[in-house]
Design a protein around this nucleic acid. Structure first.
Lengths: 334, 334
DNA sequence: CTGAAAGCGCTTACAG
DNA sequence: CTGAAAGCGCTTACAG
């Protein structure tokens, strides 16, 4: 199957290449008759312009890359979708790269920069540990969505996030206020600067404000997936029968823990209260409905796109936006 | 910030453009010394090759487009991920386009074909109604994942799917076997050729095999989302107090219906049994665990990629692959 | 191991 | 309204 070029089309239509190009780009300065003739030929031979050739001459198109860590996280997925819906500076194209939760998103980004002429970068759901220093060599506008980069070694990165530390504190506080004292925390790495580390600090804040110690035995480090949290939940509640509440740093993890409790014949919230973080849709439909810290997905997406656009257009120092989140007590807590 | 070309690099490094190109492509026929020199310059000026220019000369890269209907469907998302992981003929690039559930995926595909030189197409989760005839003009290899195109007006389309009719029949049969007679069905459009229409036929088959009529009042047409199914469930079970089971043509819908039942103080499965379709992960962790028709996601992805690859390489008539699915009775049915 | 030159398929001043 | 020609930034025979 021959691939036609505009040269072929021109010959077939008996016009110049220039004219075909004009028709292709809907320029006004072609006679209606010619347009028709050329379009007919294009139709007949299923002509499709070569985007590489177009891109080569046309004002180089800007590309914004969105790098998402973990595809099956419904919260990050929803966020990616919203980001894709935001309008971008000029008509910058968007490339979305999902990378494995265990992979190194920073190396991945560097690799991408070497292959493509990216002019802006959004990281979604990144882990912020020592690795992030490698981005210091990058002078592109970068924004981290959902985690704050304040206080990290990355001096040039912007970020949009809720106040993870404060919200975790509020969430745990909600449990403390309801009389819970033995609270299990299902979280991640406590070092580093990312959301999970900040949330761990927030948990401590809440305990300390009440003059209570944070029981290390009740801090359970786990991946925040359904299956891992389920296993971790089984393990914990078999061992610690006196735990009356769980704060899970992700909704999927919370759902996994709730299921583990059910399998141990413990009722939520009668025996154990469970609180998540994120506010994914399914949490409104489970039984019991999941209490959680609802992150404003659209707001985070919008602000991320806006900060990036502003940086790409006007430059300037990195910005850090904090969006408002809310603890929503639903049926899983009492 | 100046954008460097390989010409600039060549000048700075004191070599020819050809040599720079060779270094760029890791060709073996350059002296180590030269390589080092050129790489140093590239590094210094943050050189990134223009992919358009590369693509223009290099053997035109094949592009496979995946068109997915509805982004927040976890089942389709999982499928898309698996497809992305499958190896493709040559090193065909993959572009994944999510389109709105209400949009017309066929027009979208045609638009895409006009803009990009796509050499293969995978549709994920398409609705198959009269609109699909527009694809008859397309002579590209196309495969529909999750729906069978047998019997549709599309003569050139291949498909990979479970036997929707048979599996729906089996699922409803499982309910009938357990003594349920008043079964509500939450499905979609009953006309057309897509999965939902086939499943509706399967439901009828099951009823007819038992010599029972399918009660039209209990066929509820709804979008198969959490929120819509929730609303439809509330509405139905308020009205039909004698319904003892629900067959929902999607797991999200099933979860929505289960929640509606809970809000009506009806217990699942004691008062009403609920069965879904798809087999999404969260259904294994809800309370009660969701009974469902588990579709073999990886198998569908793998077969779709394989059929497409084969068609792209060798051509030939369209293929229709049927994969095995299984009704899994979990806690939501008794 | 290295380079000069042609060419990929378009777009875009420029001239008419 | 139309066309001849230069050029976008690379790659790739070809010659050395």
């Amino acid at each position: 199957m021959k691939v036609y070029t505009i040269r072929d089309v021109a010959k077939l239509a008996g016009v110049s290449v220039t004219t075909v190009s004009r028709v292709l780009n809907n320029r006004p300065d072609v006679s209606a008759e010619t347009v028709k003739k050329v379009q007919k030929v294009m139709e007949e031979c299923h002509f499709v312009a070569n985007p590489n050739a177009r891109g080569l001459k046309q004002a180089e198109q800007e590309i914004v890359a969105v790098i998402i860590r973990g595809r099956n996280n419904p919260f990050l997925n929803a966020l990616a979708e919203e980001i894709a819906l935001c309008k971008r500076p000029g008509k910058a194209a968007l490339i979305i790269e999902y990378i494995d939760e265990e992979a190194d998103e920073f190396r991945h980004a560097l690799g991408l920069l070497r292959r493509r002429r990216v002019s802006g970068l959004i990281f979604v759901g990144s882990r912020l540990d020592d690795r992030c220093a490698v981005l210091n060599g990058v002078s592109l506008p970068m924004v981290f969505a959902t985690v704050s980069t304040v206080g990290t070694p990355m001096e040039r990165a912007s970020s949009v996030s809720m106040d993870d530390r404060k919200m975790a504190c509020e969430a745990v506080n909600a449990l403390l206020q309801r009389g819970h004292r033995k609270i299990a925390v299902f979280g991640g790495e406590r070092s580093g600067w990312d959301s999970l580390a900040l949330r761990a600090q927030g948990v401590e804040d809440a305990f300390h404000a009440m003059g209570l110690p944070l029981d290390d035995e009740r801090y359970i480090k786990t991946r925040l997936t359904l299956s891992d949290a389920y296993a971790a939940g089984l393990e914990h509640f078999r061992r610690c029968l006196d735990t009356t509440a769980a704060f899970c740093m992700g909704d999927s993890a919370a759902l996994g823990v709730i299921r583990a409790l059910a399998d141990l014949k413990l009722k939520v919230p009668e025996d154990v209260s469970v609180m998540g973080v994120d506010g994914v849709e399914v949490g409104r439909y489970t039984t019991p409905r999941l209490s959680t810290v609802v992150q404003p997905v659209k707001e985070i997406a919008r602000q991320s796109a806006k900060v990036l656009a502003d940086l790409m257009e006007n430059g300037g120092p990195p910005k850090h936006v904090t969006v408002k989140a809310a603890v929503e007590i639903r049926e899983s807590v009492r």
